[in-house]
Design a protein around this nucleic acid. Structure first.
Length: 488
RNA sequence: GCUGGCGUAGCUCAGAAUGGCUAGAGCACCUGACUGUGGAUCAGGAGGUCUCGGGUUCAAGUCCCGACGCCAGUACCA
C-alpha cells in the first residue's frame, strides 16, 4: 500500500553507442579474420594498445589550458593528468613506436579495435566504431605507400568485393604545390588556408564543383540558410585549384603529367608528382592497374597530419559513381617526431570495419547462424543425468549442442529450438531408455512439412521427421541429417 | 552547434486540428486446449509514469513553456 515507488533506472544506451548482435558479431569476426590473413601475407604483425591513453599522447589538448579538445571522450580518474579514449589507432601507434626506440624498423603492424569520437551520430555512424589499421613505420620509400594500396586491394578482393571498389590516391605535396603555384600564402597562419582548402575539397562529392567554387572564395549558403565561411581565395587562385581538381586522367601516368603542368612552378609540387610517379611504377610492377588503383586529385583527406600521399578506398555503383568510403590513410612523416624529435617516416591506412560490414551485409552473404546444431530435450527429469551425458557425447564429437535448461513441456522445447534455428533435436524418455534407444528429430525438415499441413491431427501423423535409433548410432544419425542439410 | 520534423505497449501505429468516462488495434510475447512433438486454429493472459519537467484548467495523451531523445539537412570530424 505504500506509495513509495522503487526508482528503477530505465535501461538505455548512451547516445551514439550500440549493442552488437551475435549475428553481426560473427560476421565481423569472420571479416576480420579474412583481412588479417591478407595483412599477414604482407608480413604485418599484430599489435594491441590500450583503449585509454593520456590525452596529450593523442595530441588532443589545448596548449594554453591543458584541457583536452572537444571531440574526444576525456576524463580524470585517480590521476592528475587527463585521460582520453583513443579516437584512432595511429596516434597510439606513434606513442608506441616512440616508447620503443629499439624496434627494428621498418616496423609493420596491424591492429583492430574500437575508437571513440564525440560526433553527431547518424545512420551507420556511431561514437564507438571499429577500425582495422595497417601501417609501416620507418620507411620513407614510396614502395611502402604502394604496398599499403596493394594490401587494401587484396583485402577487399578476399572479401569478395573485386571490381566494386577502387583505391584512389592523391598527394598533399601536390596540393600544397598547387596553392603555391596559385600564389596562396601557405605558410601564413600555420597553414590555415591550406587546411580550409583541404576541408572544402573533401566535400566535393557532396556539394559538387560549383559548391566548391563558392567555398574556395567567399563562402556558401546552404539550403537551411546557414552560411559557411569560405577560404577567401581570389578568383584566379580558385581557378587554379579547380583546374587541379579536374586534372584526373584515364591513366595514372597521364594524371601525373596533367598535375605536373599545373605545379611546375613549385618545387614542393614537383616533388609530390614525382612521388606519385614512383608509386605508379611500383604498382605497375606489382601488377595493380587502373581498375584497382587510380590517381585522383580530389582525394585530400581532412586530417592535417598527412604529409605526402593520401589514399581513400571507395565503393562504386554500376554507373561507376563512388558511393561509400570504406578505408582511408596516408603518409604521416612528422607524427612520431613530436615525441622523439627525430623524423620517423610512416604511412598506413585504416579500414572502416562497421561501414564495410554494412556493405557486405547488403551484398551477397546471408547471416551466419550462431546457434547450436542439436538440442537435447528433457522429456523426463528423472533422466537428467542421461541428458547431460548425451549432450557431452555430442560435444565431444565436435557437434555444437545444447542441453535444454529451461522449464516446460516437450512442445515448448521444440519451439525453443525452432526459434533459434537449431535443426536437430534429441528426444529420449522412458520408452527409449528402456531399450537403449534415442529419437532423433529433424526439425528443419519438420518446418518444411508444416507448410503443407493444415490439420493438427495430420501434422502429428507425419512421422518422417523423426527416427528412433540405437544409442550407439545417434552420432551417425545426427551427422547424416546435418550433412544432408548442409548440402542443400 | 544550427534549422526543421517527430516522440502513445517489445515493434508498427490509431486516438489529438474541436481538452471530458476504465487510452485502443495488429504483430510479437506468455498460459492452456494437445496426455511424448514445433506449424495452423481456438480460448485466455500479461504488458503503458501517453519521453520527462513545469504551467493553464473543475478536467491534459490532447493546449502553453522548457528540457531530453530520435529523424532529416547543414557545420565540425583532430
Amino acid at each position: 500500500m505504500s506509495g513509495n515507488k522503487i526508482r528503477r533506472p530505465r535501461p538505455r544506451l548512451a547516445r551514439g553507442f550500440r549493442d552488437v548482435s551475435g549475428e553481426d558479431l560473427t560476421a565481423r569476426w569472420s571479416m576480420i579474420s579474412i583481412v588479417r590473413r591478407v595483412y599477414e601475407r604482407y608480413g604485418f604483425i599484430p599489435l594491441e594498445t590500450p583503449t585509454v591513453e593520456f590525452a596529450d599522447m593523442l595530441g588532443k589538448f589545448i596548449q594554453e589550458t591543458g584541457l583536452p579538445t572537444e571531440g574526444i571522450f576525456s576524463f580524470k580518474a585517480d590521476q592528475p593528468d587527463w585521460l582520453a579514449l583513443r579516437y584512432d589507432l595511429t596516434a597510439p601507434l606513434s606513442r608506441y613506436v616512440a616508447m620503443h626506440r629499439d624496434l627494428p624498423k621498418p616496423f609493420r603492424r596491424y591492429q583492430v579495435g574500437s575508437v571513440f569520437r564525440v560526433e553527431k551520430p547518424g545512420p551507420g555512424r556511431f561514437r564507438e566504431f571499429t577500425q582495422f589499421d595497417i601501417d609501416t613505420v620507418g620507411s620513407a620509400s614510396m614502395a611502402a605507400d604502394a604496398e599499403i594500396c596493394c594490401v587494401l586491394c587484396d583485402a577487399f578482393d578476399a572479401l569478395g568485393l573485386e571490381g566494386r571498389y577502387v583505391v584512389r590516391v592523391g598527394n598533399r605535396r601536390v596540393l600544397n604545390g598547387v596553392l603555391e603555384a596559385a600564389g596562396v600564402d601557405t605558410k601564413d597562419g600555420g597553414g590555415l588556408v591550406a587546411t580550409r582548402v583541404m576541408r572544402c575539397i573533401d566535400k566535393l562529392e557532396r556539394l559538387g564543383l560549383s559548391g566548391i567554387e563558392q567555398l574556395l572564395s567567399q563562402g556558401r549558403m546552404d539550403g537551411s540558410g546557414d552560411f559557411t565561411e569560405g577560404a577567401a581565395l581570389s578568383d584566379e587562385q580558385a581557378r587554379v585549384v579547380i583546374d587541379y581538381l579536374k586534372s584526373q586522367r584515364e591513366t595514372r601516368m597521364a594524371c601525373c603529367d596533367a598535375q605536373e603542368a599545373i605545379v611546375s612552378g613549385s618545387e614542393e609540387g614537383r616533388r609530390g608528382v614525382n612521388e606519385l610517379r614512383e608509386i605508379d611504377e611500383f604498382l605497375t610492377a606489382a601488377g595493380y592497374d587502373e581498375t584497382k588503383i587510380i590517381f585522383d586529385p580530389t582525394i585530400v583527406r581532412g586530417l592535417t597530419y598527412y604529409t605526402g600521399p593520401v589514399y581513400e578506398a571507395s565503393l562504386r555503383d554500376e554507373s561507376g559513381k563512388f558511393t561509400s568510403s570504406i578505408a582511408g590513410g596516408g603518409r604521416y612523416d612528422d607524427l612520431i617526431e613530436r615525441f622523439t624529435g627525430q623524423k620517423v617516416p610512416a604511412t598506413g591506412a585504416s579500414i572502416g570495419v562497421d561501414r564495410l560490414l554494412e556493405v557486405l551485409k547488403g551484398a551477397d552473404r546471408e547471416p551466419e547462424r550462431v546457434s547450436a546444431r542439436v538440442l537435447v530435450t528433457q522429456m523426463d527429469k528423472t533422466y537428467a543425468k542421461d541428458y547431460v551425458a548425451i549432450t557431452a557425447e555430442l560435444r565431444r564429437a565436435g557437434i555444437p549442442s545444447e542441453l535444454y535448461l529451461g522449464k516446460g513441456n516437450i512442445g515448448k522445447q521444440f519451439k525453443y529450438a525452432d526459434d533459434r534455428g537449431i535443426p536437430v533435436a534429441i528426444i529420449a524418455g522412458e520408452d527409449e531408455f528402456a531399450e537403449g534407444l534415442v529419437s532423433v528429430k529433424n526439425l528443419a525438415l519438420g518446418k518444411v512439412v508444416s507448410q503443407e499441413v493444415k490439420e493438427r491431427s495430420e501434422w502429428l501423423k507425419r512421422e518422417e521427421t523423426q527416427v528412433t535409433v540405437a544409442r550407439e548410432e545417434m552420432l551417425m544419425k545426427v551427422r547424416e541429417i546435418l550433412k544432408a542439410q548442409h548440402n542443400e
